[in-house]
Simulated scan of single mutants.
Amino acid sequence: MTEAKIGPAKLVLVRHGETEGNVAKLLDTKVPGLPLTERGAAQAKLFGETLLNPPRVLFCSTALRARQTAGYIEAATGVPTTVLDNLQEVQAGDLEGKHSEEAHLFFQRIYRAWHNGDLDERIPGGESGRDVLARFLPVIEELRETYLTPGSSEGDVLLVNHGAAMRLVSRYLADVLPPFTTNNHLDNTETIELVPLPDGSWDCIRWGRFTPPFGYDVAPTSDDPMG
């Protein structure tokens, strides 16, 4: 691992490596979920090996794919993984296990509504946007209070989790607006990077391959809806 000068500590949300569900374009959200593919394992290993500095702490959701991804990062950095509750993917309810274009478009319609402020829209048998934020945000705030004092340079907090959930959370934490947030999906092991500000808010400095300002116009896609 090549060490670089350490800047302000960030919360780095990392999407897990590729899974069998991603390849089959399944709405795979229940815990424990499907495992990483060989390619997903290679992605996770490469991510850990190419970090410029080891994280201060490393966390992951309870889903198998997140635990496996974090395990490869742990092996590369020597930083032990802690598994946290309430960070699972958006729960797809009656759409679980489906892969049709109709199911993808239905999920995306509700998901886009959340990003546009209608957090009470609910996936049948699953979660509303408000449900997702209600379980996820308290974990983020606890990590902030414990490890991310504004201006601290003690190292980043890495949190391996899930594409749809982390995009929704980041949209509201850092006020990054749709349609950027809905149309710019995250590839496996891509990151959203958030810097804590003194007023209690967050500044998003990376969203996948993009950096601010976040005005990139990318057409929406129904592929890999969890990305």
Rank of each mutant, 00 (worst) to 15 (best):
D118V: 09
A113S: 14
N183I: 06
L158N: 06
C60T: 09
A44F: 07
A41P: 00
L51K: 03
L27A: 08
Q108W: 06
A92L: 02
T149C: 13
L197S: 12
L173F: 02
L105R: 15
L87K: 05
A24M: 12
T2W: 03
R15Y: 11
I123R: 06
Y111F: 10
R135K: 14
G227V: 01
G48Y: 10
V176I: 14
R144V: 09
L159T: 05
L186S: 12
V169Y: 01
T221W: 04
V79Q: 04
G33V: 04
T82V: 13
M166H: 05
P150V: 07
Y111H: 00
T69H: 12
E190A: 06
N116K: 04
I6C: 04
G21D: 08
F59Q: 00
F106A: 15
N184I: 03
D199S: 14
P54K: 13
F136T: 15
L36S: 07
E74C: 10
L11W: 03
F214W: 08
T211L: 00
G215L: 08
R171Y: 00
V139M: 08
E127C: 04
N183K: 05
F59R: 00
V218I: 14
D156V: 05
N22K: 11
D156Y: 05
M1G: 14
D187W: 13
G129K: 01
F59K: 02
N86T: 00
P124Q: 00
S152Y: 11
A75N: 13
Y147F: 15
N188D: 12
T221V: 11
K45N: 11
P54T: 09
P124T: 02
H115N: 02
L46I: 03
T81Y: 07
D203S: 14
P32A: 06
R15D: 05
L173K: 03
S100W: 06
E101R: 15
T69K: 11
A165E: 01
L95Y: 13
E49H: 02
R112A: 13
P178M: 07
N22C: 10
A174R: 03
Q88K: 12
L159C: 10
T50I: 07
E121W: 06
Q43E: 15
V169Q: 00
K25S: 14
P225D: 10
P179Y: 10
E74W: 07
N53M: 03
